[in-house]
Nucleic acid binder design. Structure first.
Length: 371
DNA sequence: AATACGCCCAACCGCAAGAGC
DNA sequence: CGCTCTTGCGGTTGGGCGTAT
């Protein structure tokens, strides 16, 4: 096709983002909202391509992103959704409102896949391919761009698996042995393997309540930190790119530190995207130590229906696909969603202060027995 | 203490699809 | 209908960091 590159590569900066760049990007988005990425580099003076700006926003700066260790529930969600959907990280991410597809993908590649391999090796049978990827990845190759059709196929697989699972009490019966054992073991060994890391935006937060799961750690939202960053920046040198005041808190991209806490709740799921709500930035210094606006919204969010979770445009597009596939398949897929957003699960999520889907053994609902 | 090695993750790349004209 | 522009997605990579030797 001879398609031109997304941007002129010459004079485009690459590599890690600096705090100044982040501030410029965030302040621009705060002013204009996300979208129209083409205009971002021009209007902000950033020497980044539009794609890079979008990626930086969606994967890092966007409100509502939760970073740090994955909880057991999240891990289980990923494992099962991966088994059902394959490597459709965006689709998987749509069920983990506070995680980005990139995060999930990285987590899968660095943690879960290895775990599966280990367990597979321990189990001594060949259910899993060497890369630990199941089902859909073992399907015949499908041309790219056909993932809707593929999804439909996956929906059949998912429905069948769920149908099987829901009729059984044995939670491991519907899964490969290694999966079942992985799920059983995830609580214990994940916490030890999980890395405590943070980045400059994710400061250690206030003392947590006793964790409800082993080493359930979350991080102060990027929103909070960025808002603090911006606050200082705006007070002292509006429109300046020096950000001398705030950049002191920007220790460096990708640095690692001790874990944060489970009480740190990120922004909302529906504020994280194109439907960006400026209020989430809450340019109030009290943000850092008190309940941020975004946090209170999270509590609201945890009580919402599954539909509400799809306010995010990205999610809604995923859902549309699912719904489309649903209607085409003429078999309701809502059982998955019903399960995923089971009220009792949501209650638990509220207790834990974040949106988590219970796949746990402690849940006595039949649907959860599957896991 | 110095070096080598492996892990992790932020960011990049290329492709595909959607939107608008 | 076809073209261009923009966005979304999944795979891959490179550099920083921690750990082992």
């Amino acid at each position: 096709m001879g398609r031109p590159p997304c941007c002129d590569k010459t004079g485009v900066k690459k590599g890690p983002w600096t705090p100044e760049e982040d501030i410029a990007l965030v302040s621009f988005i705060q002013e204009h909202g996300p979208g129209n990425w083409r205009a971002v580099p021009t209007n902000t003076g950033l020497l980044r391509c539009s794609k890079s700006c979008r990626l930086r926003w969606t994967n890092y700066l966007r409100p509502g992103i939760r970073r740090g260790n994955f909880t057991d529930h999240e891990e289980k969600m990923i494992i099962h959704l991966q088994a059902l959907l394959g490597n459709r990280w965006a689709a998987i991410a749509s069920y983990l409102p506070q995680r980005t597809d990139n995060d999930i993908k990285n987590y899968w590649n660095t943690h879960l896949r290895k775990k599966l391999r280990k367990l597979e090796a321990a189990a001594g049978h060949g259910n899993l391919p060497s890369d630990g990827i199941l089902n859909s990845d073992q399907q015949p190759a499908v041309a790219k761009g056909q993932w809707e059709r593929r999804l439909q196929t996956d929906m059949h697989t998912a429905k069948k698996a769920l149908s099987d699972a829901l009729s059984l009490d044995d939670k491991s019966s519907a899964l490969p042995t290694s999966y079942a054992s992985l799920l059983a073991s995830s609580s214990s060994d994940l916490s030890s393997s999980a890395i405590s890391h943070s980045d400059p935006y994710f400061v250690k937060a206030n003392p947590p309540p006793p964790p409800t799961t082993a080493t359930t750690t979350t991080y102060a939202s990027s929103t909070e930190n960025i808002s603090r960053l911006l606050q200082g920046w705006m007070k002292n040198s509006p429109k300046s790119s020096t950000a001398t005041t705030s950049s002191s808190s920007y220790i460096g991209v990708g640095t690692k530190t001790e874990s944060a806490t489970s009480s740190d709740v990120e922004g909302t799921s529906n504020s994280k995207s194109e439907g960006f709500d400026q209020s989430v930035f809450g340019f109030d210094s009290s943000n850092s130590n008190t309940t941020p606006q975004s946090m209170s919204t999270v509590d609201d969010q945890t009580t919402i229906s599954s539909t509400d979770l799809y306010h995010d445009e990205k999610r809604s597009s995923n859902k549309e696909l699912i719904m489309k596939s649903e209607s085409e398949a003429a078999v309701p897929f809502s059982v998955i969603e019903n399960w995923l957003f089971d009220e009792s699960v949501v209650s638990q999520a509220q207790e834990e202060g974040l949106f988590q889907i219970s796949l746990g053994c402690e849940d006595h609902h039949n649907t959860s027995e599957f896991f």
